[in-house]
Every structure is written in structure tokens, then in C-alpha cells.
Computed example of a mutant assay.
Amino acid sequence: MNESDYEYDPKMVQIFFERYYQDRGMVKWQGYYLSDHTAALKKEAHELAKRYPPKSHQSLEKRASILAEAYANHKTVSIQLDTLDLNGNFQPDLVGKLLGYHEDTLFLDNEQFVSLSEIRHVTLLD
């Protein structure tokens, strides 16, 4: 038997689609959405990396010196943490005045606590 031996029967086709065919719905489109979503995430990660580029890694002494000056003179600091998000990008800098410290934990005026060991770079803003 070959294909030319079969006759087209619209009634049989209708029965097949009504009783036996199971439409996979959105499953067949998943690959398209996944690639589009991945491309959008990569673009967003690239833009974030440009917005918050890594600053030079300062020594502990340098960071402590800048923070001591900021604390003594009530100056605002910008702090880049040495932690990355899930995409490997740096977070926005923490900006505020240094209100105090306890051991290696700093207290900023925006109610944030920062460990000295987590800091990558400190800049005086005032």
C-alpha cells in the first residue's frame, strides 16, 4: 500500500480531531517565549552592569580612613558593596551619612547596616 491508495474522507478527519487529537495548547509555543525571555534578561543584565560598573577594590585601611573622615566631619558617603546579584552585577551604591558603628558594623542614616568586610569601595560625596 502506498499513499495514493488512501482516499481523503473529510468525515474521518473530523472524527479524528473531535475524538483523538489532543491540542498541546501553549506548550508548543514555550520555546519561543523562553528564548525571548532569555534575550530580554540578558539585555537587562547588560544594562545593569553598565549602570553600576565595578569600582576599584580598596584596601581595608583605605576604606576605614575614608569612613573615619566621613564620621568625624558628618559627610555623606557612597558605598559599593562587594556582593553581586544573581546575574553577576553590582547593586546600586548605598548613599548616606555615617551615624555610628559597632565593631565592624556601620550604621547609615537611611537605617541600613553595613559590615566593613562587605564594602568594596567608599567615596566621600560632600
Rank of each mutant, 00 (worst) to 15 (best):
106 L>I: 02
107 F>N: 05
91 Q>E: 14
117 S>M: 09
109 D>S: 07
93 D>V: 14
114 V>W: 05
100 G>H: 08
114 V>G: 01
103 E>C: 02
113 F>C: 06
113 F>P: 04
96 G>P: 05
97 K>I: 00
117 S>L: 10
113 F>V: 14
104 D>V: 09
119 I>H: 03
103 E>P: 01
98 L>S: 06
114 V>A: 02
98 L>G: 00
91 Q>K: 10
104 D>R: 07
99 L>I: 14
99 L>R: 13
111 E>R: 11
116 L>E: 02
115 S>R: 08
112 Q>S: 07
114 V>P: 00
104 D>T: 11
101 Y>C: 07
118 E>L: 08
119 I>E: 00
112 Q>R: 11
100 G>E: 10
108 L>G: 11
119 I>V: 03
93 D>W: 14
117 S>K: 12
91 Q>P: 03
104 D>G: 08
93 D>C: 15
112 Q>G: 02
114 V>T: 05
105 T>W: 10
100 G>F: 04
108 L>F: 09
108 L>Y: 14
109 D>T: 04
99 L>Y: 08
101 Y>M: 07
118 E>G: 02
119 I>P: 01
119 I>C: 02
99 L>C: 03
97 K>H: 04
105 T>D: 08
94 L>F: 08
90 F>L: 01
98 L>M: 09
109 D>G: 09
94 L>D: 05
92 P>L: 01
94 L>K: 13
109 D>W: 12
105 T>G: 04
99 L>P: 05
92 P>G: 03
119 I>N: 00
111 E>G: 12
98 L>C: 10
118 E>Q: 05
91 Q>A: 12
113 F>I: 13
106 L>W: 03
117 S>N: 08
115 S>W: 07
105 T>S: 04
119 I>T: 02
98 L>A: 06
111 E>P: 04
109 D>K: 09
112 Q>W: 04
116 L>I: 00
97 K>A: 11
91 Q>V: 07
93 D>E: 14
90 F>H: 12
95 V>F: 12
97 K>W: 03
93 D>S: 15
107 F>E: 09
102 H>G: 00
94 L>R: 10
106 L>R: 04
111 E>D: 15
115 S>H: 07
95 V>K: 15
114 V>S: 00
106 L>P: 02
90 F>T: 00
114 V>K: 10
99 L>S: 06
93 D>G: 11
92 P>C: 07
95 V>W: 03
116 L>T: 03
112 Q>T: 06
111 E>L: 11
119 I>R: 05
96 G>Q: 08
108 L>R: 10
113 F>A: 09
118 E>F: 12
107 F>W: 15
117 S>E: 09
118 E>W: 11
106 L>H: 04
90 F>Y: 15
107 F>T: 11
119 I>M: 01
105 T>L: 12
92 P>V: 03
99 L>M: 14
100 G>T: 03
111 E>C: 13
115 S>N: 06
112 Q>L: 04
